[in-house]
Design a protein around this nucleic acid. Structure first.
Lengths: 340, 340
DNA sequence: ATGAAAGCGCTAACAC
DNA sequence: GTGTTAGCGCTTTCAT
C-alpha cells in the first residue's frame, strides 16, 4: 500500500499547522477565517499529493461514521434487494454508506447483526424486523440509537416506521377477485405474529365480509418460513383438488412463486380454474402464461423516506417518533380475470 | 445514547491498567501472561458494565477494519443479490462485514464507489468490474489493495479473479439447441468489451462450427445496457418475423427476461417456433409456460472462494495472483426441446 | 489569521 | 505479571 498521505504531510509541505489543513479541506475556511492564498496552497498540495481523508480517524474523533446499517429478511429476495438498491442510492446522496445484513427472519441472527452494526458504530439503523424481535427494537430505543422500521412494525413498540397500507391493499386485492366472480378465495400467509401479515389477513377478511362472503377457516392457509415448499404444496393440493377454493390471494411474492410452481405442477388453469392475486413483484409474474395481478408496493417512497426519516432523527436528537403509511397500487392483469 | 463503556472504565473499576484489559478481552492473556484471577475480574467487569468494543478505535490503531467492499453491477439483479448473500454469509464466518455498492455498469460510478470504499479503509475489495474500468483495477493493484475480481476479469490486467468457464458453458448451451434440431440460432449479448461476454460469444461460435453450422452475422445481436428494452425488442422482431432465427441463446438473465417478454408479446411459441436457452437463473424461468433451459453458474463456489481468496491475499502480502475457473451446469428443460 | 495541543478508544512495544 | 506510554489521523478549543 503506497504511503498514505495524511493531513500532516500536507501541513508540512505547505508549512502550516494541521489545523488549517483540516479547516480548508472541510470547507470551514470562512468560519476559521483562513487566508485565501494559504487555502489555495493547501488545496493544491492536497491534490498534488492525492490526499484521501481517513474516515476512521475522523469517525473516532467525531463519533460519526456516516454509515447506516440495514437489516432485511433476505437480501436475495427481490423485494428486499430492490429496496436495498433504493436505500443505497438515497443514502449516497447524503454522503452515507450502507451496510446490509440478512436476518433470515430469525431473531437470533437479527440480534447478532444489530450487535455487529452497533459495534461498528453505525450512525443509525433501518430494519425490517423479524418475528419476536420486539425486545431488540425496544433495547435500541432505550439506548437511543436512531432507528427506522420498514415494511413491518410492532404496534406496541414506539419507534419510527414506514410501511405499506397493508389493510387497504389487501382489501382491494381481494375485492378484485370477488368482482371477477370468485367466491371461494383462499389466502396464503406466513404463520407469523408479525403485524403486517395480520393486516393483510384483516384486509382480506374485511373485503369478504363487505361482499357478504363467509370467511372460511379452511381457506386461511398458514405457511411456515422454514417449510415453505412443503406447506405451500400441501395447501394448494388440499384446496384445489376438491375445488374448495377457486382463487388464491398470496400475501408475499415468495408464497406466490412457490404456489404457482405447484399450480403448474397440478395442471390447473389460471385464471379459468383458479384466480390468482399476489403481493409484491417479480419478473416471474410477467412471464407466467396468465400475467399475475399484484399489489405493487411503493418501494421508492419506502426506501427514500426511510433514509430521510433516519437522517432526520440523527440530526435532531428528538425522542418523538414518526410514522408513515404508503399506499400501494393494484396492478390488474389476466390472472384475476375470469372469462365470465 | 447510554454512556459508552470504554476499556478505561473497566480498568478503573478493576484497578488495573487498560493494557491488561486489552490483553484479556482480546484473549491474549497467554502471550501477555496475565494473572488468572485478574483476567477473571476483568471479564466479569466487562460483562457487568456491558462493555462493547469500539471497532473504530481499534481500526485506527491497527489499520484493519475487518470490512470488505463489494462492487457489483446492480444489487437488485438476482444474480448479484444471490451472490451478495453468499459473500455476506461467508465473510461473517471470518468476522468480516461487507459493504455493497452498485456500479450500474458505469465506469464513473465504479470509480466513485472504489474511492468511497478506500476512504472507508476497507481491508479489501471484491469487484465485478464494469466496462472500461481496467485503469481503476490497475490503480488498485499499484496501490497494493487486496482485490478479487468476480464474474468478469480483464485478460491483460494481472489480478486475482474467479469466474465461470464461460466458453464451455456457452458451448454446451448452444450445442443443446443444435442437438434438438435448431439450426438458425441467434445469440443475444451485451455490446460490451467485457471479456466474459466475448467468451460466451466465442463458445457459441465454436459450437456452431463444430457442428458444421455457419456463423451468421445477422444472428449476433448486440444490446446496449442503456437501451435494453428497445434493443431487445428490435432484435427479436427483426429475427423472428421473417423466420431468420428459430432459436435464441440469451447470455444473461436480464436479456432473457426482456426477450421472453417480447416473445410473449409477438405470440410465437416456445419451443415449437423458437428454442430458448439462457445464462443464469431467475424464478421467471420456472414459471414460464415452457420452463427455460439455463446455464446455472455455481454462485456458491464463486462467492465463497472470492472471500477466501481475498482473505488469503490480506494475510500474505504476496503480489502473486490466483485465478480460478468454475464450471457451470446446463439445466435442460422444455424451452430447448423441440418436439421433433 | 494561524498554531499548539488535547484528546477520541484502542493496541502494543517497552519498562519495571 | 503488570503498568506506562506513544501514537493511529483527525477535529476543535484555546491561545497567540
Amino acid at each position: 500500500m503506497n504511503k498514505k498521505i495524511s493531513m500532516k504531510d500536507i501541513a508540512v509541505k505547505v508549512g502550516v499547522s494541521t489545523a488549517l489543513v483540516s479547516y480548508v479541506l472541510n470547507n470551514k475556511e470562512k468560519e476559521a477565517r483562513v487566508g485565501k492564498d494559504i487555502a489555495l496552497k493547501i488545496r493544491k498540495a492536497a491534490s498534488d499529493l492525492n490526499y484521501q481523508p481517513n474516515f476512521i480517524a475522523r469517525s473516532l474523533k467525531t463519533g460519526k461514521t456516516n454509515t447506516i446499517g440495514v437489516i432485511v429478511a433476505d437480501i436475495s429476495n427481490p423485494f428486499f434487494s430492490n429496496l436495498a438498491r433504493i436505500i443505497e442510492d438515497e443514502a449516497k446522496k447524503f454522503g452515507y454508506t450502507v451496510i446490509f445484513g440478512s436476518s433470515d427472519e430469525r431473531a437470533d441472527k437479527s440480534g447478532d447483526l444489530i450487535e455487529t452494526f452497533i459495534n461498528r458504530q453505525v450512525d443509525g439503523l433501518i430494519i425490517a424486523p423479524a418475528e419476536h424481535t420486539e425486545s431488540q427494537i425496544k433495547t435500541l430505543r432505550r439506548k437511543e440509537i436512531p432507528l427506522v422500521l420498514i415494511d413491518r412494525f410492532f404496534p406496541n413498540v414506539d419507534a419510527n416506521y414506514i410501511h405499506t397500507n397493508n389493510f387497504a391493499a389487501s382489501y382491494e386485492a381481494t375485492e378484485q377477485l370477488i368482482k371477477n366472480g370468485y367466491k371461494r378465495i383462499a389466502i396464503f400467509a406466513y404463520d407469523a405474529s408479525l403485524f403486517h401479515m395480520q393486516e393483510r389477513t384483516r384486509g382480506y377478511k374485511a373485503a369478504l365480509k363487505a361482499n357478504k362472503l363467509r370467511v372460511n377457516k379452511n381457506l386461511l392457509c398458514q405457511v411456515k418460513h422454514a417449510s415453505l415448499e412443503k406447506d405451500v404444496a400441501h395447501h394448494v393440493n388440499a384446496l384445489v383438488k376438491d375445488g374448495e377454493a377457486n382463487a388464491i390471494f398470496f400475501t408475499t411474492n415468495s408464497l406466490a412463486v412457490q404456489g404457482l410452481r405447484e399450480i403448474i405442477k397440478i395442471g390447473i388453469k389460471v385464471p379459468e380454474e383458479i384466480g390468482v392475486v399476489s403481493f409484491d413483484e417479480t419478473d416471474a409474474f410477467d412471464l407466467f402464461y396468465a400475467p399475475i395481478t399484484y399489489v405493487k408496493q411503493n418501494l421508492t417512497d419506502i426506501g427514500r423516506e426511510s433514509v430521510r426519516m433516519l437522517l432526520e432523527s440523527l440530526e435532531k436528537q428528538t425522542k418523538k417518533t414518526t410514522h408513515m403509511s404508503v399506499e400501494a397500487k393494484l396492478v390488474v392483469r389476466k390472472s384475476s380475470e375470469r372469462g365470465s
